[in-house]
Design a protein around this nucleic acid. Sequence first.
DNA 1: CTAAGACTTCAAGTAAACTTGAGGTCAAGC
DNA 2: GCTTGACCTCAAGTTTACTTGAAGTCTTAG
Lengths: 167, 167
Amino acid sequence: MDTNGGDELSHKMPGQELLSIGTVSERTGVARSALHYYEDVGLIASLRSAGNQRRYPRHMLRRISLITVGSKLGIPLNDIKRALEPVPMNTMPSEADWLRATAEWKRVLEARRRAIEELEDRLMGCIGCGCLSMQACTLLNPEDALAREGSGARRLEAADDEDLRAT
Amino acid sequence: MDTNGGDELSHKMPGQELLSIGTVSERTGVARSALHYYEDVGLIASLRSAGNQRRYPRHMLRRISLITVGSKLGIPLNDIKRALEPVPMNTMPSEADWLRATAEWKRVLEARRRAIEELEDRLMGCIGCGCLSMQACTLLNPEDALAREGSGARRLEAADDEDLRAT
DNA sequence: CTAAGACTTCAAGTAAACTTGAGGTCAAGC
DNA sequence: GCTTGACCTCAAGTTTACTTGAAGTCTTAG
């Protein structure tokens, strides 16, 4: 049963222990099939035992956790992959590696967090006080500048600002 | 061109104007095909013109905007639908209607916002200071209580708390 | 009244992110 | 050394959230 540790790849050196896919799945909450998939698309990597079974270094747990959180926040795996590119998979990532990756994440996460906060405000505060304007949401208007000031000469509505206001 | 207003359904009464699908699509940034789809799955509804074309009351814009934001945050449309169930579609929703729906949203959004903040902290702060524990993340451990205290007698790892800590 | 563009339905196709299953191999406790 | 459960690959299937296209109808500026 307990497949991890004990074969020729893991010499019980501290900091060198390798984890089986079952162990990783259990600890991260990510299904084995999903781990296979992540490997297929290059999001993660694994060493192999003599018998071709996956063996994960411990630092992969961290990477997988980040993937899970990002994924649950609706960030496409492809974007996550790009953000994690500066973090090495074959060696233990250094602090500098993580910090480099962090710049990307910070941008994306900050935008999402702000969008949520705006939505919360709007739902909690503004509905309560009767002001329902939804003009400035960053998630709603990603590149509205283009759409509004764009090439075509659309002149359909004049009092456009009133559209999303209540009563 | 300009299809909205002008037929027997819209009498130019203030607060009664109905919008064509094209207009709604343009103002919300949601594709027509997506609006069709949302209607199919019951997320939104539309009145019809004499010639069977969709006509949206203005308050649908608000509903659609909420759907868009939720969707971009990775909330499944089914969950969004459930959260929006207390908000009527056939009549102009009252403040009370929105407030009822808000309770649901608040829960979900709050959880997501916290998760992002934790992740930001972890990426920005904790990586910087060398502390990399990722134990308490709400998105990572949704119902870990069950997994940890559950039925089976798994006793694989003893020093489990050390797993996700760096160096 | 008519032509152009906006709209209709319905069916089928697509992309992302997995899951499931078949058929076979590996690892380890007894 | 063998059985049992964990693992392997590869192909196909599933779900969600749409998009695309065909074939036809509606609406309105001129």
